[in-house]
Amino acid sequence: MQFDFDISEPIYLQVAEQIEDAIFTGAFPANNQIPSTTEISKQFHINPATVLKGMNILVNEGLLEKRRGMGTFVTIDGQKRVVEKRHSQFYENFVVDMIHEADKLKLGQDEVLKLIQRGYQHDND
Rank of each mutant, 00 (worst) to 15 (best):
G108P: 08
L105Q: 14
A49W: 02
T72N: 14
I76Q: 15
I57Q: 14
R86T: 03
G71L: 10
I46S: 01
Q121L: 12
T37D: 07
A27T: 11
V95D: 09
L107G: 02
R81D: 01
G54E: 02
I40E: 01
I46K: 02
K106A: 13
K66G: 04
M98N: 00
E84I: 04
L115T: 01
F73G: 08
F3A: 03
P29K: 10
E92M: 11
Q121G: 00
I34A: 00
V96M: 01
M98Q: 01
S88V: 12
Q117M: 09
I116L: 11
G108Y: 05
F3D: 03
N124Q: 14
I99E: 05
K106G: 10
A102D: 04
L113D: 03
G54S: 05
L52T: 12
Q33V: 07
Y91A: 13
I7V: 13
S88E: 15
G26F: 07
D77Y: 08
I23Q: 04
E61M: 15
V82H: 02
N93F: 06
N124P: 00
Y91E: 10
T37I: 15
I19H: 02
D6L: 08
F44S: 03
R118V: 03
G78C: 08
L52E: 12
I46A: 10
D4T: 04
L58C: 05
D4W: 04
E9V: 11
M55K: 13
E84C: 03
K42E: 13
D123G: 07
T50R: 08
S36T: 15
Q109W: 07
H45V: 14
Q43F: 10
R67M: 04
Y120N: 06
S88M: 12
L107I: 07
F90Q: 07
M98Y: 06
N31S: 12
G69N: 12
L13W: 11
T75I: 02
M98H: 01
K53G: 00
V51H: 10
T75K: 09
Q2S: 10
R118Y: 15
Q2A: 06
Q43L: 13
L52A: 14
G78M: 10
V95G: 02
L105P: 00
E17R: 15
T72P: 05
I19G: 00
Q43H: 15
Y91G: 03
T75V: 08
N124R: 13
V15K: 03
H87F: 13
V82E: 06
A27C: 02
L113V: 09
K53L: 11
F3M: 04
H45S: 15
I40N: 00
I7M: 03
K104F: 05
